[in-house]
Design a protein around this nucleic acid. Structure first.
Lengths: 229, 229
DNA sequence: TTAGTGTAAATTGTTTACATAGCGCGCATG
DNA sequence: CATGCGCGCTATGTAAACAATTTACACTAA
Protein backbone atom coordinates (compact mmCIF):
# COMPACT_ATOMS: atom_id res chain seq x y z
CA UNK A 1 0.00 0.00 0.00
CA UNK A 2 1.24 3.45 -0.88
CA UNK A 3 1.47 5.55 2.22
CA UNK A 4 1.96 8.96 0.64
CA UNK A 5 -1.02 8.50 -1.68
CA UNK A 6 -3.43 7.38 0.99
CA UNK A 7 -2.44 10.18 3.35
CA UNK A 8 -2.80 12.68 0.53
CA UNK A 9 -6.30 11.59 -0.39
CA UNK A 10 -7.20 11.61 3.27
CA UNK A 11 -5.99 15.17 3.46
CA UNK A 12 -7.99 16.04 0.37
CA UNK A 13 -11.07 14.60 1.94
CA UNK A 14 -10.40 16.68 5.00
CA UNK A 15 -9.98 19.82 2.97
CA UNK A 16 -13.23 19.15 1.23
CA UNK A 17 -15.02 18.56 4.49
CA UNK A 18 -13.55 21.76 5.94
CA UNK A 19 -15.36 24.09 3.63
CA UNK A 20 -18.36 22.04 2.59
CA UNK A 21 -20.51 19.69 4.54
CA UNK A 22 -21.41 16.26 3.30
CA UNK A 23 -24.79 17.65 2.38
CA UNK A 24 -23.17 20.34 0.28
CA UNK A 25 -21.14 17.77 -1.58
CA UNK A 26 -24.27 15.71 -2.21
CA UNK A 27 -26.05 18.75 -3.59
CA UNK A 28 -23.24 19.27 -6.10
CA UNK A 29 -23.18 15.59 -7.04
CA UNK A 30 -26.93 15.36 -7.54
CA UNK A 31 -27.01 18.65 -9.42
CA UNK A 32 -24.37 17.26 -11.71
CA UNK A 33 -26.32 14.06 -12.28
CA UNK A 34 -29.43 16.04 -13.10
CA UNK A 35 -27.85 18.62 -15.38
CA UNK A 36 -25.86 16.04 -17.32
CA UNK A 37 -29.07 14.11 -17.83
CA UNK A 38 -27.97 10.99 -15.99
CA UNK A 39 -31.08 11.58 -13.92
CA UNK A 40 -33.77 12.47 -16.40
CA UNK A 41 -36.80 14.74 -15.89
CA UNK A 42 -39.60 12.83 -14.19
CA UNK A 43 -37.23 10.22 -12.80
CA UNK A 44 -37.47 9.44 -9.13
CA UNK A 45 -34.60 9.95 -6.70
CA UNK A 46 -34.60 6.85 -4.51
CA UNK A 47 -33.24 7.80 -1.10
CA UNK A 48 -31.86 4.41 -0.14
CA UNK A 49 -30.38 3.73 -3.54
CA UNK A 50 -28.67 7.12 -3.80
CA UNK A 51 -27.39 7.21 -0.23
CA UNK A 52 -25.90 3.75 -0.78
CA UNK A 53 -24.33 4.96 -4.02
CA UNK A 54 -22.60 7.87 -2.30
CA UNK A 55 -21.84 5.95 0.87
CA UNK A 56 -23.85 8.17 3.20
CA UNK A 57 -26.94 7.79 5.29
CA UNK A 58 -30.34 9.10 4.30
CA UNK A 59 -30.16 12.18 6.51
CA UNK A 60 -27.68 14.22 4.50
CA UNK A 61 -29.24 13.01 1.27
CA UNK A 62 -32.67 14.22 2.33
CA UNK A 63 -31.19 17.60 3.22
CA UNK A 64 -29.57 17.71 -0.20
CA UNK A 65 -32.83 16.98 -1.99
CA UNK A 66 -34.53 19.75 0.01
CA UNK A 67 -31.91 22.14 -1.25
CA UNK A 68 -32.49 20.96 -4.80
CA UNK A 69 -36.23 21.40 -4.31
CA UNK A 70 -35.71 25.01 -3.24
CA UNK A 71 -33.47 25.51 -6.26
CA UNK A 72 -36.29 24.26 -8.44
CA UNK A 73 -34.45 21.23 -9.82
CA UNK A 74 -36.70 18.60 -8.24
CA UNK A 75 -40.26 18.27 -6.99
CA UNK A 76 -40.98 16.57 -3.69
CA UNK A 77 -44.34 14.89 -3.12
CA UNK A 78 -45.14 13.81 0.39
CA UNK A 79 -44.92 10.06 0.96
CA UNK A 80 -44.31 9.60 -2.74
CA UNK A 81 -40.75 10.74 -3.21
CA UNK A 82 -38.57 13.25 -4.98
CA UNK A 83 -38.63 13.55 -8.75
CA UNK A 84 -36.42 15.38 -11.21
CA UNK A 85 -38.43 18.37 -12.28
CA UNK A 86 -39.84 18.43 -15.76
CA UNK A 87 -40.19 21.94 -17.13
CA UNK A 88 -43.19 22.46 -19.38
CA UNK A 89 -42.93 24.48 -22.56
CA UNK A 90 -45.08 27.18 -20.97
CA UNK A 91 -42.73 27.49 -18.04
CA UNK A 92 -39.76 27.47 -20.37
CA UNK A 93 -41.24 30.49 -22.13
CA UNK A 94 -41.65 32.25 -18.78
CA UNK A 95 -38.03 31.54 -17.97
CA UNK A 96 -36.87 32.81 -21.36
CA UNK A 97 -38.53 36.16 -20.64
CA UNK A 98 -36.87 36.45 -17.25
CA UNK A 99 -33.54 35.47 -18.71
CA UNK A 100 -34.02 38.16 -21.33
CA UNK A 101 -34.69 40.75 -18.63
CA UNK A 102 -31.59 39.75 -16.67
CA UNK A 103 -29.43 39.64 -19.76
CA UNK A 104 -30.77 43.04 -20.74
CA UNK A 105 -29.77 44.30 -17.32
CA UNK A 106 -26.27 42.96 -17.94
CA UNK A 107 -26.10 44.99 -21.15
CA UNK A 108 -27.30 48.12 -19.40
CA UNK A 109 -24.82 47.72 -16.54
CA UNK A 110 -21.93 46.94 -18.86
CA UNK A 111 -22.51 50.10 -20.90
CA UNK A 112 -21.52 52.24 -17.96
CA UNK A 113 -18.39 50.32 -17.14
CA UNK A 114 -17.08 49.08 -20.47
CA UNK A 115 -13.34 49.43 -21.06
CA UNK A 116 -11.28 49.29 -24.24
CA UNK A 117 -9.70 46.09 -23.02
CA UNK A 118 -13.12 44.48 -22.67
CA UNK A 119 -14.15 45.60 -26.14
CA UNK A 120 -10.98 44.08 -27.54
CA UNK A 121 -11.71 40.81 -25.76
CA UNK A 122 -15.30 40.82 -26.99
CA UNK A 123 -14.21 41.40 -30.59
CA UNK A 124 -11.82 38.47 -30.28
CA UNK A 125 -14.80 36.39 -29.26
CA UNK A 126 -16.83 37.62 -32.23
CA UNK A 127 -14.10 36.91 -34.77
CA UNK A 128 -13.43 33.46 -33.40
CA UNK A 129 -17.10 32.61 -33.43
CA UNK A 130 -17.52 33.95 -36.96
CA UNK A 131 -14.72 31.71 -38.11
CA UNK A 132 -16.16 28.63 -36.46
CA UNK A 133 -19.67 29.46 -37.62
CA UNK A 134 -18.52 29.55 -41.24
CA UNK A 135 -17.11 26.07 -40.80
CA UNK A 136 -20.49 24.99 -39.41
CA UNK A 137 -18.58 23.43 -36.55
CA UNK A 138 -21.36 23.32 -34.04
CA UNK A 139 -19.42 21.30 -31.49
CA UNK A 140 -16.92 24.12 -31.11
CA UNK A 141 -19.40 26.98 -31.52
CA UNK A 142 -21.70 25.99 -28.69
CA UNK A 143 -19.20 26.08 -25.79
CA UNK A 144 -17.65 29.28 -27.12
CA UNK A 145 -21.10 30.84 -27.23
CA UNK A 146 -21.59 29.85 -23.60
CA UNK A 147 -18.22 31.33 -22.69
CA UNK A 148 -19.13 34.57 -24.43
CA UNK A 149 -22.37 34.93 -22.51
CA UNK A 150 -20.69 33.94 -19.29
CA UNK A 151 -18.00 36.55 -19.83
CA UNK A 152 -20.61 39.25 -20.32
CA UNK A 153 -22.63 38.31 -17.25
CA UNK A 154 -19.59 38.03 -15.00
CA UNK A 155 -18.16 41.33 -16.23
CA UNK A 156 -21.05 43.19 -14.63
CA UNK A 157 -19.54 42.32 -11.23
CA UNK A 158 -23.07 41.71 -9.97
CA UNK A 159 -22.72 38.34 -8.28
CA UNK A 160 -26.40 38.04 -7.51
CA UNK A 161 -27.17 38.56 -11.17
CA UNK A 162 -24.65 35.91 -12.20
CA UNK A 163 -26.12 33.42 -9.75
CA UNK A 164 -29.72 34.03 -10.78
CA UNK A 165 -28.90 33.92 -14.47
CA UNK A 166 -27.07 30.62 -14.11
CA UNK A 167 -29.97 29.20 -12.16
CA UNK A 168 -32.36 30.08 -14.99
CA UNK A 169 -30.14 28.53 -17.64
CA UNK A 170 -29.93 25.38 -15.54
CA UNK A 171 -33.69 25.14 -15.27
CA UNK A 172 -34.08 25.41 -19.02
CA UNK A 173 -32.06 22.22 -19.30
CA UNK A 174 -34.94 20.41 -17.58
CA UNK A 175 -37.27 21.14 -20.47
CA UNK A 176 -37.73 18.01 -22.50
CA UNK A 177 -38.82 19.94 -25.57
CA UNK A 178 -35.42 21.58 -25.75
CA UNK A 179 -32.20 20.40 -27.30
CA UNK A 180 -32.53 20.85 -31.02
CA UNK A 181 -33.03 24.57 -30.64
CA UNK A 182 -29.50 25.86 -30.98
CA UNK A 183 -28.69 24.07 -34.22
CA UNK A 184 -30.61 26.54 -36.36
CA UNK A 185 -29.28 29.83 -35.06
CA UNK A 186 -25.60 29.65 -35.70
CA UNK A 187 -24.52 32.43 -38.02
CA UNK A 188 -27.71 34.30 -37.17
CA UNK A 189 -26.76 34.28 -33.55
CA UNK A 190 -23.34 35.80 -34.10
CA UNK A 191 -24.87 38.68 -36.05
CA UNK A 192 -26.92 39.38 -32.95
CA UNK A 193 -23.76 39.23 -30.89
CA UNK A 194 -22.22 41.97 -33.02
CA UNK A 195 -25.28 44.12 -32.49
CA UNK A 196 -24.84 43.70 -28.76
CA UNK A 197 -21.18 44.64 -28.74
CA UNK A 198 -21.84 47.61 -31.03
CA UNK A 199 -24.53 48.79 -28.64
CA UNK A 200 -22.10 48.52 -25.74
CA UNK A 201 -19.52 50.54 -27.66
CA UNK A 202 -22.10 53.23 -28.45
CA UNK A 203 -22.42 54.02 -24.75
CA UNK A 204 -26.22 54.10 -25.00
CA UNK A 205 -27.63 52.28 -21.98
CA UNK A 206 -31.13 51.71 -23.29
CA UNK A 207 -29.88 50.56 -26.68
CA UNK A 208 -27.56 48.02 -25.08
CA UNK A 209 -30.28 46.75 -22.77
CA UNK A 210 -32.63 46.36 -25.69
CA UNK A 211 -30.02 44.59 -27.83
CA UNK A 212 -29.21 42.14 -25.04
CA UNK A 213 -32.88 41.63 -24.24
CA UNK A 214 -33.79 40.92 -27.85
CA UNK A 215 -30.97 38.45 -28.26
CA UNK A 216 -32.55 36.15 -25.70
CA UNK A 217 -36.03 36.85 -27.02
CA UNK A 218 -34.94 35.70 -30.47
CA UNK A 219 -33.66 32.43 -29.04
CA UNK A 220 -37.05 32.13 -27.37
CA UNK A 221 -38.55 32.62 -30.81
CA UNK A 222 -36.40 29.85 -32.25
CA UNK A 223 -37.57 27.67 -29.37
CA UNK A 224 -41.24 28.28 -30.10
CA UNK A 225 -40.86 27.68 -33.82
CA UNK A 226 -39.10 24.36 -33.29
CA UNK A 227 -41.81 23.61 -30.76
CA UNK A 228 -44.54 24.09 -33.36
CA UNK A 229 -43.25 21.11 -35.32
CA UNK B 1 -68.23 20.82 22.46
CA UNK B 2 -69.05 21.72 18.90
CA UNK B 3 -68.91 18.66 16.73
CA UNK B 4 -69.01 20.33 13.36
CA UNK B 5 -66.18 22.66 14.28
CA UNK B 6 -63.88 19.96 15.61
CA UNK B 7 -64.49 17.72 12.63
CA UNK B 8 -63.80 20.64 10.36
CA UNK B 9 -60.49 21.48 11.99
CA UNK B 10 -59.60 17.82 11.90
CA UNK B 11 -60.29 17.86 8.20
CA UNK B 12 -58.19 21.01 7.88
CA UNK B 13 -55.29 19.35 9.63
CA UNK B 14 -55.67 16.42 7.32
CA UNK B 15 -55.63 18.66 4.30
CA UNK B 16 -52.55 20.42 5.59
CA UNK B 17 -50.70 17.17 6.17
CA UNK B 18 -51.72 15.91 2.77
CA UNK B 19 -49.93 18.61 0.83
CA UNK B 20 -47.22 19.73 3.21
CA UNK B 21 -44.82 17.74 5.29
CA UNK B 22 -43.60 18.74 8.68
CA UNK B 23 -40.55 20.17 7.01
CA UNK B 24 -42.68 22.32 4.73
CA UNK B 25 -44.58 23.71 7.69
CA UNK B 26 -41.31 24.47 9.45
CA UNK B 27 -40.02 26.33 6.42
CA UNK B 28 -43.09 28.55 6.45
CA UNK B 29 -42.86 29.14 10.21
CA UNK B 30 -39.18 30.00 10.12
CA UNK B 31 -39.62 32.19 7.05
CA UNK B 32 -42.30 34.06 8.94
CA UNK B 33 -40.08 34.51 11.98
CA UNK B 34 -37.28 35.85 9.82
CA UNK B 35 -39.35 38.19 7.66
CA UNK B 36 -41.24 39.65 10.60
CA UNK B 37 -37.92 40.32 12.29
CA UNK B 38 -38.51 38.06 15.28
CA UNK B 39 -35.30 36.40 14.19
CA UNK B 40 -32.98 39.24 13.33
CA UNK B 41 -30.15 39.28 10.76
CA UNK B 42 -27.02 37.72 12.22
CA UNK B 43 -29.00 35.82 14.84
CA UNK B 44 -28.33 32.14 15.21
CA UNK B 45 -30.97 29.47 14.68
CA UNK B 46 -30.46 27.01 17.51
CA UNK B 47 -31.51 23.57 16.28
CA UNK B 48 -32.39 22.09 19.64
CA UNK B 49 -34.15 25.18 20.88
CA UNK B 50 -36.22 25.61 17.72
CA UNK B 51 -37.07 21.94 17.33
CA UNK B 52 -38.26 21.92 20.94
CA UNK B 53 -40.28 25.06 20.29
CA UNK B 54 -42.10 23.48 17.36
CA UNK B 55 -42.31 20.05 18.95
CA UNK B 56 -40.32 18.22 16.31
CA UNK B 57 -36.99 16.49 16.20
CA UNK B 58 -33.88 18.00 14.68
CA UNK B 59 -34.16 16.14 11.38
CA UNK B 60 -37.09 18.01 9.84
CA UNK B 61 -35.77 21.26 11.25
CA UNK B 62 -32.41 20.74 9.56
CA UNK B 63 -34.17 20.04 6.28
CA UNK B 64 -36.11 23.26 6.72
CA UNK B 65 -32.97 25.31 7.33
CA UNK B 66 -31.39 23.79 4.21
CA UNK B 67 -34.35 25.03 2.23
CA UNK B 68 -33.99 28.48 3.76
CA UNK B 69 -30.30 28.41 2.92
CA UNK B 70 -31.06 27.67 -0.72
CA UNK B 71 -33.62 30.48 -0.68
CA UNK B 72 -30.90 32.81 0.55
CA UNK B 73 -32.55 33.67 3.86
CA UNK B 74 -29.91 32.08 6.10
CA UNK B 75 -26.22 31.19 5.97
CA UNK B 76 -25.00 27.84 7.26
CA UNK B 77 -21.47 27.49 8.55
CA UNK B 78 -20.24 23.97 9.14
CA UNK B 79 -20.01 23.06 12.82
CA UNK B 80 -20.91 26.61 13.75
CA UNK B 81 -24.58 26.84 13.04
CA UNK B 82 -27.19 28.53 10.89
CA UNK B 83 -27.53 32.30 10.99
CA UNK B 84 -30.14 34.67 9.62
CA UNK B 85 -28.55 36.24 6.61
CA UNK B 86 -27.47 39.82 6.81
CA UNK B 87 -27.58 41.55 3.45
CA UNK B 88 -24.84 44.12 2.93
CA UNK B 89 -25.59 47.46 1.29
CA UNK B 90 -23.57 46.36 -1.73
CA UNK B 91 -25.67 43.25 -2.15
CA UNK B 92 -28.83 45.29 -1.63
CA UNK B 93 -27.80 47.48 -4.56
CA UNK B 94 -27.27 44.38 -6.69
CA UNK B 95 -30.72 43.15 -5.77
CA UNK B 96 -32.29 46.51 -6.57
CA UNK B 97 -30.91 46.31 -10.09
CA UNK B 98 -32.27 42.83 -10.61
CA UNK B 99 -35.62 43.85 -9.19
CA UNK B 100 -35.63 46.76 -11.61
CA UNK B 101 -34.97 44.42 -14.52
CA UNK B 102 -37.79 42.07 -13.48
CA UNK B 103 -40.19 44.93 -12.85
CA UNK B 104 -39.26 46.38 -16.24
CA UNK B 105 -40.09 43.01 -17.76
CA UNK B 106 -43.48 43.16 -16.07
CA UNK B 107 -44.12 46.53 -17.72
CA UNK B 108 -43.08 45.21 -21.10
CA UNK B 109 -45.24 42.10 -20.80
CA UNK B 110 -48.25 44.04 -19.54
CA UNK B 111 -48.15 46.44 -22.47
CA UNK B 112 -49.07 43.64 -24.85
CA UNK B 113 -51.93 42.33 -22.75
CA UNK B 114 -53.39 45.38 -21.07
CA UNK B 115 -57.19 45.63 -21.06
CA UNK B 116 -59.49 48.58 -20.39
CA UNK B 117 -60.65 46.88 -17.21
CA UNK B 118 -57.09 46.71 -15.97
CA UNK B 119 -56.45 50.36 -16.78
CA UNK B 120 -59.58 51.29 -14.84
CA UNK B 121 -58.39 49.27 -11.86
CA UNK B 122 -54.94 50.84 -12.05
CA UNK B 123 -56.37 54.35 -12.14
CA UNK B 124 -58.43 53.52 -9.07
CA UNK B 125 -55.20 52.60 -7.37
CA UNK B 126 -53.56 55.86 -8.44
CA UNK B 127 -56.43 58.06 -7.24
CA UNK B 128 -56.65 56.31 -3.92
CA UNK B 129 -52.93 56.60 -3.37
CA UNK B 130 -52.94 60.27 -4.35
CA UNK B 131 -55.62 60.90 -1.78
CA UNK B 132 -53.75 59.11 0.98
CA UNK B 133 -50.46 60.69 -0.03
CA UNK B 134 -51.93 64.16 0.36
CA UNK B 135 -52.98 63.23 3.88
CA UNK B 136 -49.39 62.11 4.52
CA UNK B 137 -50.87 58.93 5.93
CA UNK B 138 -47.88 56.68 5.53
CA UNK B 139 -49.40 53.76 7.40
CA UNK B 140 -52.11 53.42 4.79
CA UNK B 141 -49.95 54.35 1.80
CA UNK B 142 -47.33 51.67 2.28
CA UNK B 143 -49.57 48.57 2.11
CA UNK B 144 -51.53 50.04 -0.79
CA UNK B 145 -48.27 50.64 -2.61
CA UNK B 146 -47.36 46.98 -2.06
CA UNK B 147 -50.76 45.91 -3.35
CA UNK B 148 -50.32 48.05 -6.45
CA UNK B 149 -46.97 46.50 -7.29
CA UNK B 150 -48.26 43.03 -6.51
CA UNK B 151 -51.23 43.57 -8.81
CA UNK B 152 -48.93 44.57 -11.64
CA UNK B 153 -46.58 41.64 -11.20
CA UNK B 154 -49.37 39.09 -10.93
CA UNK B 155 -51.22 40.50 -13.93
CA UNK B 156 -48.39 39.38 -16.18
CA UNK B 157 -49.51 35.78 -15.57
CA UNK B 158 -45.85 34.83 -15.39
CA UNK B 159 -45.72 32.77 -12.24
CA UNK B 160 -41.98 32.33 -12.34
CA UNK B 161 -41.58 36.09 -12.52
CA UNK B 162 -43.90 36.59 -9.56
CA UNK B 163 -41.99 34.05 -7.51
CA UNK B 164 -38.57 35.48 -8.30
CA UNK B 165 -39.71 39.04 -7.70
CA UNK B 166 -41.15 38.15 -4.32
CA UNK B 167 -37.97 36.36 -3.38
CA UNK B 168 -35.95 39.48 -4.15
CA UNK B 169 -38.23 41.74 -2.13
CA UNK B 170 -37.94 39.31 0.78
CA UNK B 171 -34.17 39.38 0.65
CA UNK B 172 -34.15 43.18 0.76
CA UNK B 173 -35.88 42.93 4.13
CA UNK B 174 -32.70 41.33 5.48
CA UNK B 175 -30.71 44.48 4.87
CA UNK B 176 -30.13 46.23 8.16
CA UNK B 177 -29.51 49.59 6.52
CA UNK B 178 -33.05 49.58 5.18
CA UNK B 179 -36.26 50.74 6.78
CA UNK B 180 -36.29 54.50 6.72
CA UNK B 181 -36.10 54.55 2.95
CA UNK B 182 -39.77 54.70 1.98
CA UNK B 183 -40.73 57.64 4.18
CA UNK B 184 -39.21 60.23 1.84
CA UNK B 185 -40.70 59.17 -1.47
CA UNK B 186 -44.42 59.36 -0.94
CA UNK B 187 -45.94 61.85 -3.33
CA UNK B 188 -42.88 61.47 -5.52
CA UNK B 189 -43.53 57.80 -5.82
CA UNK B 190 -47.09 58.16 -6.98
CA UNK B 191 -46.02 60.52 -9.74
CA UNK B 192 -43.78 57.72 -10.94
CA UNK B 193 -46.73 55.35 -10.76
CA UNK B 194 -48.68 57.60 -13.12
CA UNK B 195 -45.81 57.57 -15.55
CA UNK B 196 -45.89 53.80 -15.50
CA UNK B 197 -49.62 53.52 -16.14
CA UNK B 198 -49.43 56.15 -18.86
CA UNK B 199 -46.66 54.17 -20.52
CA UNK B 200 -48.81 51.03 -20.37
CA UNK B 201 -51.73 52.87 -21.94
CA UNK B 202 -49.51 54.17 -24.73
CA UNK B 203 -48.91 50.64 -25.94
CA UNK B 204 -45.19 51.26 -26.31
CA UNK B 205 -43.36 48.23 -24.97
CA UNK B 206 -39.93 49.81 -24.58
CA UNK B 207 -41.36 52.90 -22.95
CA UNK B 208 -43.28 50.87 -20.40
CA UNK B 209 -40.29 48.69 -19.65
CA UNK B 210 -38.15 51.79 -19.14
CA UNK B 211 -40.75 53.47 -16.92
CA UNK B 212 -41.10 50.39 -14.72
CA UNK B 213 -37.35 49.88 -14.62
CA UNK B 214 -36.66 53.47 -13.61
CA UNK B 215 -39.28 53.36 -10.88
CA UNK B 216 -37.28 50.76 -9.01
CA UNK B 217 -33.99 52.46 -9.85
CA UNK B 218 -35.26 55.66 -8.24
CA UNK B 219 -36.13 53.81 -5.06
CA UNK B 220 -32.59 52.44 -5.24
CA UNK B 221 -31.42 56.05 -5.48
CA UNK B 222 -33.42 56.97 -2.40
CA UNK B 223 -31.81 54.02 -0.65
CA UNK B 224 -28.29 55.16 -1.50
CA UNK B 225 -28.92 58.75 -0.45
CA UNK B 226 -30.29 57.73 2.94
CA UNK B 227 -27.32 55.40 3.17
CA UNK B 228 -24.90 58.28 2.73
CA UNK B 229 -26.06 59.83 6.00
C1' DT C 1 -63.67 -11.57 -16.70
C1' DT C 2 -63.49 -7.80 -13.75
C1' DA C 3 -63.98 -5.08 -9.81
C1' DG C 4 -62.81 -4.87 -5.13
C1' DT C 5 -60.34 -6.03 -1.00
C1' DG C 6 -56.69 -7.50 1.92
C1' DT C 7 -51.97 -8.28 2.72
C1' DA C 8 -47.04 -7.79 2.13
C1' DA C 9 -43.08 -5.34 0.44
C1' DA C 10 -40.94 -1.12 -0.44
C1' DT C 11 -40.31 3.67 0.47
C1' DT C 12 -40.65 7.75 2.84
C1' DG C 13 -41.23 10.48 7.39
C1' DT C 14 -39.54 11.00 11.93
C1' DT C 15 -37.15 10.13 16.10
C1' DT C 16 -33.35 8.76 18.85
C1' DA C 17 -28.61 7.85 19.77
C1' DC C 18 -23.81 8.37 19.01
C1' DA C 19 -19.50 10.77 17.10
C1' DT C 20 -17.12 14.88 16.33
C1' DA C 21 -15.90 19.69 16.01
C1' DG C 22 -15.79 24.50 18.18
C1' DC C 23 -15.58 27.53 21.92
C1' DG C 24 -15.00 29.21 26.55
C1' DC C 25 -13.35 29.00 31.02
C1' DG C 26 -10.11 28.16 34.51
C1' DC C 27 -5.69 27.07 35.99
C1' DA C 28 -0.93 27.09 35.84
C1' DT C 29 3.20 29.43 34.56
C1' DG C 30 6.41 32.97 32.93
C1' DC D 1 -0.82 40.48 35.54
C1' DA D 2 -0.77 38.58 31.03
C1' DT D 3 -0.51 34.51 28.27
C1' DG D 4 -0.81 29.83 26.91
C1' DC D 5 -2.54 25.29 27.53
C1' DG D 6 -5.88 21.82 28.53
C1' DC D 7 -10.30 20.33 29.98
C1' DG D 8 -15.20 20.15 29.54
C1' DC D 9 -19.46 21.78 27.66
C1' DT D 10 -22.48 22.75 23.97
C1' DA D 11 -24.04 22.34 19.38
C1' DT D 12 -23.69 20.24 15.02
C1' DG D 13 -22.87 16.11 11.70
C1' DT D 14 -24.04 11.52 10.83
C1' DA D 15 -26.07 7.04 11.19
C1' DA D 16 -29.33 3.68 12.45
C1' DA D 17 -33.77 2.29 14.18
C1' DC D 18 -38.73 2.94 14.30
C1' DA D 19 -43.37 4.49 12.44
C1' DA D 20 -46.54 5.48 8.87
C1' DT D 21 -47.89 5.62 4.20
C1' DT D 22 -48.05 4.11 -0.47
C1' DT D 23 -47.99 0.66 -3.99
C1' DA D 24 -48.15 -3.75 -6.04
C1' DC D 25 -50.05 -8.10 -6.30
C1' DA D 26 -52.79 -11.94 -5.38
C1' DC D 27 -57.14 -13.68 -4.11
C1' DT D 28 -62.13 -13.55 -3.75
C1' DA D 29 -66.68 -12.70 -5.20
C1' DA D 30 -70.12 -10.88 -8.35
Amino acid sequence: MDNSTSSQTAQNDLQVLRTSSLTGALVRELEHLILTGELKPGERLNEIQLSARFGTSRGPLREATRTLEAKGLVDAIRNRGVFVRSISSEEALEIYDIRAALFGLAGRLLTDMITDAMLVRLNEFLNQMDEIAQQRDFDRYYPLNLQFHDFLIKSTNNKTLAREYKSLVNKLHLCRARGLVQAGGLAVSNHEHREMVDALASGNRERAQEAFFRHVERSKQRFTTTLAK
